[in-house]
Simulated assay, not measured.
Amino acid sequence: MHQEFGVTAKAEHYTCMIDLLGRAGRLEEAEALMKDMPFEPDGTMWGALLGASRKHGNTKLGEKAAERIFEMEPDNSGMYVLLSNLYAASGKWKNVGKLRLMMKEKGVKKVPGFSWIEVQNKVHTFSAGDSIHPEKDRIYAFLEELDMKMKKAGYVSATEMVLHDVEEEEKEHMLKYHSEKLAVAFGILNMPLGRPVRVIKNLRVCEDCHNAIKYISAIENRLIILRDSNRFHHFSGGLCSCGDYW
């Protein structure tokens, strides 16, 4: 950058490179780059390393990254969730419990996930396992049908995302009714063919829902546009515009 284009690398450039190396599984290189930077790493950089550690199952590095983040951003609930995901995926349920207790003692509250969709000039809001919406029975029945079709097409639930020490069947059930899936199902049921289904979520779409919505877009032959806290996702024909990189 500097030699060929005269551009001095700033913090955001280093953050992108750390994230890129981490996603590629080159965690040692990502950490080494952080050590060699001309300035101290910030919470965003450590967050990228924690996310990569979760993705690649490196508990030791993930704990190190989380420790730094908690020093800088003690109220960042998203980072507690990332570390919990890492522990859960590794089967370390005692650590998950300790982390929940730590959050409670520090007064850190996990932001609940909500999804919104507008149909006929009315906004419908969904939470995970929603039992309030007047069309809940119809939505749940439709999701059950979709689940069977998706599994026939090759879909497998990402049960490692569930932060509870329960049986696999129960984990699948918990994943099935996330807010974005409910909103997407409602949109398909109530919007005419040819119209895109547009959903907004206040948090980052989870890995399982992202995968499931790809399958749903192909099975139902619908364009599904999901705006989460990171970016827009355009699902069509079983693919997402983000290329599974978000």
Score class of each variant (00 low, 15 high):
residue 2 H to R: 07
residue 4 E to G: 10
residue 4 E to D: 13
residue 6 G to H: 08
residue 7 V to H: 14
residue 8 T to P: 03
residue 9 A to R: 05
residue 10 K to D: 06
residue 11 A to G: 06
residue 12 E to R: 13
residue 12 E to Y: 09
residue 13 H to K: 00
residue 14 Y to V: 00
residue 15 T to C: 10
residue 16 C to T: 11
residue 16 C to D: 07
residue 17 M to T: 06
residue 17 M to H: 04
residue 18 I to N: 03
residue 21 L to Y: 15
residue 21 L to I: 08
residue 24 A to W: 06
residue 26 R to L: 11
residue 26 R to E: 10
residue 28 E to I: 08
residue 29 E to P: 01
residue 30 A to N: 01
residue 34 M to V: 03
residue 36 D to Y: 00
residue 38 P to M: 01
residue 42 D to I: 00
residue 43 G to E: 12
residue 44 T to S: 11
residue 45 M to K: 00
residue 46 W to I: 03
residue 49 L to C: 10
residue 51 G to K: 06
residue 51 G to N: 08
residue 53 S to I: 06
residue 54 R to S: 14
residue 54 R to A: 10
residue 55 K to H: 12
residue 58 N to H: 12
residue 59 T to H: 07
residue 60 K to Y: 14
residue 62 G to H: 09
residue 63 E to I: 07
residue 63 E to P: 04
residue 64 K to T: 14
residue 66 A to D: 12
residue 67 E to V: 08
residue 68 R to E: 10
residue 69 I to V: 13
residue 72 M to A: 15
residue 72 M to R: 13
residue 75 D to P: 06
residue 75 D to V: 10
residue 75 D to R: 13
residue 79 M to C: 07
residue 84 S to E: 02
residue 88 A to D: 02
residue 88 A to I: 03
residue 89 A to F: 02
residue 91 G to W: 02
residue 91 G to D: 03
residue 92 K to L: 14
residue 94 K to M: 11
residue 96 V to S: 03
residue 101 L to V: 14
residue 102 M to P: 08
residue 102 M to H: 14
residue 103 M to N: 06
residue 103 M to P: 08
residue 105 E to S: 12
residue 108 V to M: 04
residue 108 V to W: 05
residue 109 K to W: 04
residue 113 G to P: 10
residue 113 G to W: 05
residue 114 F to K: 12
residue 114 F to G: 03
residue 115 S to V: 02
residue 115 S to A: 13
residue 117 I to W: 00
residue 120 Q to C: 14
residue 121 N to Q: 09
residue 122 K to L: 15
residue 123 V to E: 11
residue 124 H to K: 10
residue 125 T to C: 07
residue 126 F to Y: 01
residue 128 A to H: 12
residue 131 S to H: 13
residue 136 K to Y: 09
residue 137 D to F: 13
residue 137 D to N: 15
residue 137 D to V: 13
residue 139 I to D: 12
residue 140 Y to Q: 11
residue 142 F to G: 06
residue 143 L to T: 10
residue 145 E to M: 15
residue 148 M to S: 15
residue 151 K to N: 08
residue 156 V to Y: 12
residue 158 A to M: 09
residue 159 T to L: 01
residue 160 E to Y: 08
residue 160 E to D: 11
residue 161 M to T: 15
residue 162 V to H: 05
residue 163 L to K: 10
residue 164 H to I: 08
residue 164 H to Y: 10
residue 165 D to H: 13
residue 167 E to P: 05
residue 167 E to T: 12
residue 169 E to V: 08
residue 171 K to F: 01
residue 174 M to V: 15
residue 175 L to S: 12
residue 175 L to P: 03
residue 177 Y to W: 09
residue 178 H to S: 12
residue 178 H to V: 07
residue 181 K to L: 01
residue 181 K to M: 01
residue 184 V to S: 01
residue 185 A to F: 02
residue 187 G to Q: 04
residue 188 I to C: 02
residue 191 M to L: 15
residue 194 G to Y: 00
residue 194 G to W: 00
residue 194 G to I: 00
residue 195 R to Q: 15
residue 196 P to I: 09
residue 199 V to S: 03
residue 201 K to P: 03
residue 207 E to I: 11
residue 207 E to H: 13
residue 209 C to W: 00
residue 210 H to N: 09
residue 211 N to S: 14
residue 212 A to K: 01
residue 213 I to D: 01
residue 215 Y to G: 03
residue 215 Y to M: 02
residue 225 I to A: 06
residue 225 I to H: 07
residue 227 R to Q: 12
residue 237 G to H: 01
residue 237 G to S: 00
residue 240 C to A: 14
residue 243 G to R: 01
residue 244 D to F: 10
residue 245 Y to N: 11
